[in-house]
Design a protein around this nucleic acid. Sequence first.
DNA 1: GTTAACGTCCAA
DNA 2: TTGGACGTTAAC
Length: 855
Amino acid sequence: MAMSLSADDEDYDSDTAEQQRPANRPKPKMAATATASMATTSSTATAVKLPSNRSSSGARRRRTRCRKCEACVRTECGECHFCKDMKKFGGPGRMKQSCIMRQCIAPVLPHTAVCVVCGEAGKEDTLDDDEEKFNAMLMECSICNEIVHPNCLKVKDAAGVVNDELPNCWECPKCNYAGKTGKACKQKRGPGFKYASNLPGSLLREQRGGRDGRDEAEQAAIAAATARRKSERDDAPRPSPEEPVARLPPLLTPRDLPRPRPDVPNFLRKKKKLFDDDEEEDEASAKKKLKRPWRSEEPLIAPMKMEEEELEEEQEEETKLSPRLLAKKEEETKLSPRLLTKKEEESKLSPRLLTKKELSSIRKQEEHEQEKDEDEEEEEEEGGLPVPACSPMQKSLPLCVESDTSQCSSPRAGPSSEGSEGQERVPRARVRRPRRRAPRRQLGAELSKHLNLEIRRTELSLANENQQPLQSEPEDSENEEPKRSFRNGAAGGGAGPGPEVGGVGGERPHLRAREMNGTAWELRHFYPSHITPLGLNRSSPTLRPPPTRSPPKCVQMERHVIRPPPICPPPDRLPLADGRSHVAQRELWLAIFSYLSHRELCVCMRVCRTWNRWCCDKRLWTRVDLSRCKSITPLMLSGVIRRQPVTLDLSWTNISKKQLSWLLNRLPGLRVLLLSGCSWVAVSALCTSTCPLLRTLDLQWVEGLKDPQIRDLLSPPTDNRPGQIDTRSKLRNVLDLCLAGLDVTDGSLRLIIKNMPLLARLNLSYCNHVNDQSVNLLTAAGTTTRDSLTHINLSVCNRVTDQSLSYFKRCANICCIDLRYCKQVSQQACERFIAEMSVSVSFGLREDKLLQKLC
DNA sequence: GTTAACGTCCAA
DNA sequence: TTGGACGTTAAC
């Protein structure tokens, strides 16, 4: 198998695993193994050698719903893949999976879980003090799966690495000290998180990556960062300087934590290989990432990406903003050489994470620790690392400290995206990797040079590759005038033009298009790029982005669940460095933020976690515009989900079907969807996704969208459940439909009439198959469109004649009829229409053949 | 005992 | 590599 065991694993397998389990399935039943492992405490010895979670010492306790989080309290959507499988929704019930909208954010240990040492359950409820609480709660190791009270651990001088993204989850001191974080850490977020394997920032993907040796650096870095955060918050068991060396695990010595035991060839080989692999892998993956064509487009959404990065970055820096916390940290580090080392390692190795203040602080610490071997090594590593200045915002606004101490630390909509392919993470991932497994003394100096070199090389490569300026997000926001003038209709993609419709400024494209009478394809492909079809919504490229890029491999949807936004509401006030709260409440800040552009919001998100969360408020992001982004990256997707926009513009992107489907299933409040210029393959995601609130749908110039595809789009769900047959189209609530530039015929119109009873605005411009008969259909007695239509755009429909105008007289509510550049429609006929309608309604000509009701 | 669904295997 | 299937666990 492709994801077969690595050489390491083979070593292991040949060595010890045979008694542990058969090759694939842990067929000794879970219950049995669980019981066995629960009953034994002698797993330590084997745990050290275990390469993966699967075969680790403790059989995992299955986690269960917390029953409290937003997801848990939701009802089933009834629409997702898994709901449809459920018997209650008429499915066969084979898949037995939870509704994707109900994936628990914080799966908890089952009630029956007990400490492997003392056999008792969690006792934190009986205690008040945070530290005591922590020591009395059950913690499950994501590596060896053992569940223990930290208090019950014998090795008390070791700090566990707490995973604060999952309740009661850590890397226990044993595993942590054994250096098993990376490759062995199959689950960075611990057990309980499944699916999402290929989501932006997907866990499973990272896990797999971890198993394969990929992303280890990121995993380790995140784990370490998480641990640090948590240890600061929870006062997790800290190493104490007076703890005797003898209490360390047998393979460890205080000076050289992960030093392999020389008399264990396999083990040695394995660790060494891990290290070597890491290096090679890092280099290889960095190169690979550089080569991925779609990655080069990422700067197009720099702000959104920035935000994702900044969250991490801010998490690193958050406490450092507070002198008090800094002092505390220094104190801690004096007490704990190991902790210091780890922190230093992380921070020193990451050029982006250091401010001058931090640097000086670290240097101060170094002076205290100079005589320690570890630090000598660190100094070598630090040498020559660039220390970029922090952003002006960061410098000028160091007012808030981390405030979010809840479990759900990440405000992201989904799983942490540290595994996502942000370009800038390449060097970061490299530098942040704690190299616990490395034979440090031997390799430290050389490695640090190599790393520095590599960092620079990588960054240089990235800079060269990405010619685009970093911040070139399409300028859009509610606060800004959209660049494109085509925003006819209620929300942008619709049919009803005002006279402003074609107004791109300067020459109207109609003038050039006047003589055009080609097919949609011809129109699509042979229009000069500056004359957009109808001049409507393309100020830049007319052609679709080259479809050569496949969507990011990691975005495979269906069963991949992105966890909903955190349960904990964002803090209401900004915590200040002195421990007090800022006087202004969140709502006030949001009011201020509402004056900012999206780009500016992204800058604000760098300030601190609180601002990061506030700035993601969906009220500030009602419209998200990714149009013309050549590739839609996982980061973008997760950014969109996090913001839950009402309007989403994906026009002229190469979004894939899976990406779109994934998005749609997670944007239940989406009302406006702009997909002009996308491919039908992508748009077909609408066939299987539900957007119950969708009101505006822009499908103009969608490649490959013809009658059969319209039928697919409008057809009701095919998997009707017995007794719950819904013959209504999923697009039945659409009010505003834009089909400009498509080869649709009367067949499609019939379906539209039948399935879109609320349709008020219809744009059929550049539809060369539309003729008088089409108008007759739309306005025939008994049709819903006859009464519902208010705006119709038939501009550049050359088969429409004067006859159509007489049909429009039937429409009770028609307000706007755009017949501009219809060759066979005469000005006289328009004037006659106005005269005849004047008995009941006043119409006027806003432009040649553009009839509009006068108020 | 029933129901929900987690975690894993394995065919495609 | 992915998605379907299902054994098994956890809650009730």
